[in-house]
Design a protein around this nucleic acid. Sequence first.
RNA 1: GGAGAGGUGGCAGAGUGGUCGAAUGUACCUGACUCGAAAUCAGGCGUAGGUUCAAACCUACCGUGGGUUCGAAUCCCACCCUCUCCGCCA
Length: 426
Amino acid sequence: MLDIQLLRNDLDAVTAGLASRGYAFDAAAFQALEQERKSVQTRTQELQAKRNATSKQIGQAKAKGEDVSAIMAEVANLGDELKAAEVRLEVIQAQLLEQLSQVPNLPHETTPIGKSEADNVEVRRVGTPRSFDFPVKDHVDVGEGLAQLDFATAGKISGARFTLLKGQMARLHRALAQFMLDMHTQEHGYTEVYVPYLVNADSMRGTGQLPKFEADLFAVQKNEAEKLYLIPTAEVPVTNMVRDEIVPLENLPLKFVAHTPCFRSEAGSYGRDTRGMIRQHQFDKVELVQIVHPSKSYEALEELTGQAEAVLKKLELPYRVMALCSGDIGFSSAKTYDLEVWLPAQNAYREISSCSNFEAFQARRMQARYRNEKGKPELLHTINGSGLAVGRTLVAILENYQNADGSVTVPSALRPYLGGLERLQG
RNA sequence: GGAGAGGUGGCAGAGUGGUCGAAUGUACCUGACUCGAAAUCAGGCGUAGGUUCAAACCUACCGUGGGUUCGAAUCCCACCCUCUCCGCCA
């Protein structure tokens, strides 16, 4: 959520910033509502002050045993107008909040301006794609060839966009998550957390999935009145750890890593990436989250991105880093780097991690704060990134490390996690 | 699932209809005393919002939401959470 003060004081700049990411902010509607809010709120508070003062008089008069009927008559007329004003104010403020929660974050000044994916800027490219002297298979053919990847059975059990792994490949998938967790905890200073996979609506609002993107989520009914949502990313439970908290300055930065399944309805992505395990309803991800002092958040974004890259480097997978343009960054993000891994069968780089600085956008929704040098609570900045998407990492390994005989070489960094196994074989 | 207890400021804890945004203790900050510290004494010390250049004033907040009342931390209703005991359970 944007700072409403910023909209009040600098509406033109906000509107322009939002326009750069393709969001047409209705400044006139905002101003009209804001103006009404001002007059109704002032009037409401006047009436409340009057009521409070009068009620106090009644109390004092009664204590002295005086007759209060005259004062009572005076305040009697207040009631209706006050009630109406309070109700109106509540409606207006709910509308303002509703309007404001639809508004995406402002892009940071270093976010390239652009309309779509095509305008993203390549920041760097690491590693050289291997050249193959045999026809390259995609990960589905490799996995099914080994009889360790089974979409047919997954489809029977659950439907489209689910995966079933068996044997060495299931183990490789598990090993990848362990490998990533160990790297981030042992080398990058993150604290591992195990978190709930079902979260309440407040948490989804905190990180920005609600109210706008409910259709992308899976939900279960907790009871008649309340739903719980399946997390689409560990970002949600982990970042919400600090919701409604005031973190002591000396505890910053907080750095958490979590391995969780992620559940996405993939509404609106019909027909995209239908083959294979690129786009699934359920996938595993190791997520990095940092909660930092506002002055440190861009530094932290670079650091976190580098830590996600370190996984790809250790696995010796070629990749590139893209700075997403203003038209392509996510709703809550001010700046995002995507890591894209090389997939030889697609002859393309595909997203495997997304690292974003949300600045205070999530923190404001969550009321996640720290106490500054003067002891005043101030909003924190939140950063997160995949480190990495486990399923897509598996895909990248199957494709990049495939051999002519259908086997897959295990990247050497992973072998200790697989009991020394060097090859996946049918 | 059953029975009971409870949710108030950083923490502890009082407050059962009026001068209560809230006693008291403790922690913390400032000052005095002291060579310095401790002890002691004095003062300060929640959050959000509004009007405003500012000063200042005002409003809201005692788990959450609703209700009663001129007036609610306090009374009523519903819900949430925590704790204890019993049952069940991976």
